[in-house]
Nucleic acid binder design. Structure first.
Lengths: 138, 138
DNA sequence: CAATATCGCTTGCATTTTGCAAGTTACCTT
DNA sequence: AAGGTAACTTGCAAAATGCAAGCGATATTG
């Protein structure tokens, strides 16, 4: 029962997936300016590898030929439960900013949050789940 | 909502955690000989960092002063849901060996498997995880 | 239409991390 | 006492990463 080292073996891939899934990122520039400080050569390399691994797709935008839209595939969006559990764990064990209510929220609403993430993906809704550092989930 | 790069930012930490949690590994030598081909200096470094991060403990064994027993802390065992979701995802998307039954097993028995993992941790049961003797985790 | 800006990269090189083989130290067995 | 074993450490080579600059294809502006 092995762990895919394709994304969990490096520092950036999972952050890219999270940003696609939760923050609603779509373009190279958004990743570049996200404050994560990822170098552009590494970003290009990781996007290439995630695409090769069937986790994201890269399509040129219609209205602007320079832009490329990156999106999660079904395989990619199926990582939502992993991400959610990871965020729950992080909130419980790694945060100092009173996260207790948040943890309860996330655990109680696990299925609802996952459903919402999947709905957004299906409908190509680009709005982030997270707004200005605050959770929008009721 | 950030992802802990302490373990998810490198190639080996998560494998070490999995081996502690599921395969029942306890000692340096077991990791060394697990077939993962991790270099001993890196292994020592990762064990040190996981300990510093509060995810594992390192205790000298009573009966043999050379041996060190590594175990997950509560913070560490709380990663079980993450691991399980990751294994489910891997089984669904990355395996060729007829995993359909296995996926169903894992998804249907999610809570039972987690309970079993936690029980073994609580009782310090070193046996690798099996589910009702039906199948093993290689 | 020409000049300029933007987007998604690539390139060259310095720095950091990793991998490999060979020790080293403390402890255990005979 | 001699030899083996467990858990490391060390030195050096190889690979991955980070950084700054540049490049080609659009798009926008004047």
């Amino acid at each position: 029962m092995s762990i895919s080292l394709e994304m969990f073996g490096d520092r950036w891939s999972l952050l890219i997936i999270r940003d696609l899934m939760i923050r609603g990122f779509r373009t190279f520039k958004e990743f570049q300016e996200s404050g994560e400080e990822i170098a552009t050569n590494i970003l290009a390399d990781r996007l290439r590898k995630l695409e090769a691994g069937g986790i994201i797709t890269a399509d040129a935008e219609q209205t602007d030929g320079r832009k490329v839209n990156y999106r999660l595939t079904e395989k990619g969006i199926d990582l939502a439960p992993v991400l959610l559990e990871l965020l729950i764990w992080g909130a419980r064990h790694e945060k100092t900013e009173a996260p207790c209510a948040l943890i309860e929220q996330m655990e109680k609403n696990r299925e609802r949050i996952l459903a919402e993430v999947r709905r957004r993906w299906r409908e190509r809704d680009p709005a982030p789940l997270q707004v200005r550092g605050q959770w929008r989930w009721p």
